[in-house]
Amino acid sequence: MPFHYELRFVGAGGQGNMLAGTIIAEAAIFYENKYATQVPTYTSQVRGGPTKADVIIDDQPIEFAESTHIDFLLALDQRAFELYKGDLKVNALVLIDSHLVQVSPEDQQRRDVYAYPIVRTAKYEIGKLVTANILAVGLTVELTAVLDKENVRKAIRACVPAAFLDLNMRAYDLGLQAARELRSRKRQLMAADRLACPSMVPPSDVLTALAPSTCGQPLTA
């Protein structure tokens, strides 16, 4: 049976979705000798606009690199989720940030939805908001089980700045572990999470916290 798997990472510009996609694609190419593509799409806003990175992994060369039959979707932003949730396969795996994205009951029914407070955990538990994407990579790798965990670890090591390597490794491990727990008690955790945090964190606050040093700079296209 030929192997073909499509992932899509969506969020708001600045959250690191592109890099998350790159890490997955590079792990597949360099460490698993597969074919993979990563196609980023973003708006002319530097930060804050909806972004999307499509990743396709295949054991054959990939002809058309845009995802059209998606097996796995990661969403860190509501607007991007609504914009790019098309093309999902029935029963596709969907991983959302439980504070930033809400899934309609219909989506909930048709997809295999997992929710985790990714951005909040990165900020308060790991202590660095920018590790949110690596935490998400950990969750992705464990939930999808299409790539070897240690191969992805190698790809992360090659992609992140050396000064933040330990922090990112912690985020990755935490993501792997969180996904295992999520899988085992998916429904209970979602219910508990909703009760604990009834209000949504406004995305603009998150973005400001993500890139405080770049706020107010002119946008370029």
């Binding site: 593509t37 990563q38 196609v39």
Partner: peptide
């Protein structure tokens, strides 16, 4: 734009 940003093997 698609080809220029396509990242792959």
């Amino acid at each position: 734009a698609t080809l220029s940003h396509l990242h792959g093997r």
